[in-house]
Structure formats: structure tokens, C-alpha cells
Design a protein around this nucleic acid. Sequence first.
RNA 1: GCCGCUAUCGUCCAGGGGACUAGGACGCCGCCCUCUCAUGGCGGAAACCCGGGUUCGAAUCCCGGUAGCGGUACCA
Length: 455
Amino acid sequence: MRVRFAPSPTGALHIGGARTALFNWLLARHEGGELLLRIEDTDRERSTVENVEQILDALRWLEIDWDVGPILQTARSQRHGEALQALLDAGHAYRSGATADDVKAFKLLHGANRGFRGAEEPDGAVRLHVPNEGATVVHDVIRGETTFENVHLDDPVIARADGSVLYNFAVAIDDLDAGITHVVRGEDHLSNTPKQLLVLEAARAVGLDRSGGRPPSPLPIYAHLPLLHGPDGKKLSKRHGAASVQELRDAGYLPAAVRNYLALLGWGAGDDATVLSTDELIERFTLERVSRNPARFDETKLKWLNGLYIRNLPLSELTQRLEEFTGRTGLEQAARISQEKIHTLADFLPLAGPLLDGPAEDPKARERWLGDDGRAALAEARGALEQAPTFDEGSLEQALGAVIERRGAKPREVYQPLRVALTGTTISPGIFESLVLLGREEALRRIDGALAARS
RNA sequence: GCCGCUAUCGUCCAGGGGACUAGGACGCCGCCCUCUCAUGGCGGAAACCCGGGUUCGAAUCCCGGUAGCGGUACCA
């Protein structure tokens, strides 16, 4: 088995593209096949080398590796030219000066009952001859058979007048030459498949599948994946938050969690399993279990899953990822006490930052917890902290517990003023853990600051 | 417009003629745990798009409608 992922470098790698890459990768790894990476850069207007780099980056971040490539489609222009000429010579394709407007006018006149057939002219763009009779049938592992009546199909332009080839031609020739056995891609390509099948048919008729003396290859098996939509059911876009892999990374998601979540979009293990390691995904992935319905990208569920993955990370790895993400060092203790409270790497600094960098500014929190009662409790807590025999979680809990008891207070009536004094806010890691992280001296300093702030 | 794909809780995924009182997960609601926020535990609300047909029996098969989406480029 040989599959391919073939993005076009007209932008960053989108989540939909990432899902397609993942499914191809899971399939190849499950079957012990090969994954080929091909960059479809025949769109001269929109393809850029920066985008190519970004796509490779995104795949590497996702830890999706490939066995062959990356192959640039434009690097194969010589072969494309030969193949094109072969079809031209054999009369499977022809040149025509007809423009897109001509096609539109033709459709207006004839409706859908006739596909556009151009006049053969000495020069102009190259169109493929589509027969008026018969039908082209796409056999799809996921969708079964889809029949396209040839008479509905326009003769597609397969190359510009200057000989540079277009997608529907290049993709067919490249898949043929690369010996691709399974074409797994988004459903948006389903309607293009008959054109590619027709190109393939013509290519095989002139012996292009036997170029270089190789044996003729069978047609690839097709699998068209359901599309991914934004939370509103519309096409995924910037408006939906993280739409590209880069944005997912910047939002603090873990690659393993992203793979797990993406695998669940359009596929299910079949036994209600939701949390699946990458090994399990590889083990269990089959095309037969891919669903036909479009799926919506729901960041809430990703967030939950990511939180789960973060909680299951060894502390050393979490620390390393947090340090990489924030560009800081010495985060291990803060990471330890934040681990079960964050859902993304990006949640870390808002939670633990005040501990590390000094109290946050939150007037509401001060007003609510550092009034007269709060300050009285805080002053008493300060004394207990100063007196505590050792400054570890156990003895602090004991010392502060005694304060609570003595005052006949609810625990929060002591802990919240203390928390606000320490961090400036009402949300933080556990109070004892936070105290230990700060150390006695710094903790007392912050408490004194809070007591002095306003009388 | 035309061609095509799709249709189960708000979302994702099961179920594919009787085992359905339709299952799991996220989210939501309630309770418990609790120093805040989380985590964890327990419980709850929540769906077979509509209409015909086939059948003893339809969420499941067929047809139609509707809706969503894709394609209809000298984009991919």
C-alpha cells in the first residue's frame, strides 16, 4: 500500500488538511504501507515557498512523518509535458481557444444536458476529450459507487496554452507514476474524481502507466473523507478561533491530544472508546470505519482532551513543554502545582504567573476579601506563618488550621484573603503549595504589602 | 441553475430490519468532595429531518421532499 498526502501551499495547513494527513498516516502505519508527501504547487498565483515550509512545520509538530518526499509537483513539469504531448498525439486531448466565458455562455444556452466540447484549434489551452456517451463511476471505500454521466461533464482544461499543467491532470499523472494505491482525501474532491479517472483512462490507453518498463498498475482505490466544518456548520475559517495547525500549537495544545481529537472527527473506534493513544489509533484505524457525515470542529472537546493529556504527562515532560512554550526556565515547581488545573499550556501563566512574577492587579478581589474582616484574618495568618516550625505543606496546613479554629471562621475566610494577598487574585494553585513555592520570606513580604496597601 | 455527497442528543462517535425504554464522550444542569479554580465521584435533561412505500415489524431498506455541504476555474 502506498498513500499520499498532497496539500497545496496556498496557505497554512488547516485543521481539515491536518485531519486528512493524519488519516493517511494512520492508514499507512496500520497497514505497514508508505506515505508520500507531495506539494501541489501548480497554482502559480497563490503557491509560496513560505507556505511549503509552514506545512512541513505543521506536520512535524503533529509528529506525522512521511516516507517519500516532499515532492514538488512543479518539479515534474518535464514528465507532465511528455504525458500531455502523448495525450495530444493520440487525440485524447486537444487545443482550443475557448475561454471560461465561452463555457459559461454554452451552459446558459444548453443547460446541463450537454457538457462543453471545445472546437479543435491550432493553439490555445489543452482540453481533455470527454465522451458524450456512457458514465464514469467512482468506486469509493467510504461512499460506495457514485455515477457521473459523461454528458454532464465539460471537457476539462488540463493545461494552459503555455503547456503548464493543471491540477486534475497533474494529480492523476503523479499518482500513477508514484504507484499510489489508495487516494484518501477530502470529499471536496469527489466531484473532480471522474475527470481524473478520465485522464487516467487516457493515460493508460497511450501506455503512460508502463513508462520506464514498469508493469501496468491498477487504478487507485478512492476514499473521500467527510469535510470538517466550523462550530457554526460553515467552512472552517479564522473566525472560528484556531483554524490552522500553527494556531493550535500557539493555543497550547499537545500534538498527541490533537491527533486523538482529530482522529475522532469522521472516525470512531466502534466501541465508544474516546481516549486513544497514537499506538491505539494506528492499531485500530481502518477506512471502513470512516463515517460519511461532515463533522464540526469543536474546540471545547479538544480542550477537555488536552487537559486529560496534560494531567497524564510526567512532570518532567510537562515542565519541559511549559518552558518551551513560555520561553522561561525553572518552572518545575509551578508546573507541579498547576498540572491538574490547566487545560492547555497557555493556561499556565495566567494561573501561576502571579506566583512567579508578583501579585496581579484585581481590585474586585481586594475589595471582596481584604476588607476589615479579611485583613484581620490575614494578620493572624501572617503570625501563624511566621511562627510555623517548618515551611512545608503539612505544617502550614496545621498552622493555618489553628488560625481558623481560633477565629471560629470558615476555612475560606482565612484562605481567600491570604490567596489575594499572595497572588492578587482569587484563583491560584492550592494555597499551601503556593506558600511553599514562594517561601516564607516572600510570602510574608507579600502579606505585609497587602496589609499596608490601604487602611 | 446544474451535477454530486450527507442527514441519530447542542457537538463528536455507536447502533445498519426485532436485543432500542436508542448507547458512549464533550458540553449543560444538579448533588458530593473542596482553600479558589480545577480534578474526581454520583445523578439528570437532551436525538433517529419530514412524507410516502416495502415488511408481521423500519432509526435501520426504497422513493420523494426539505435542509446542509461540495463541485460546477486556463485554483487545488
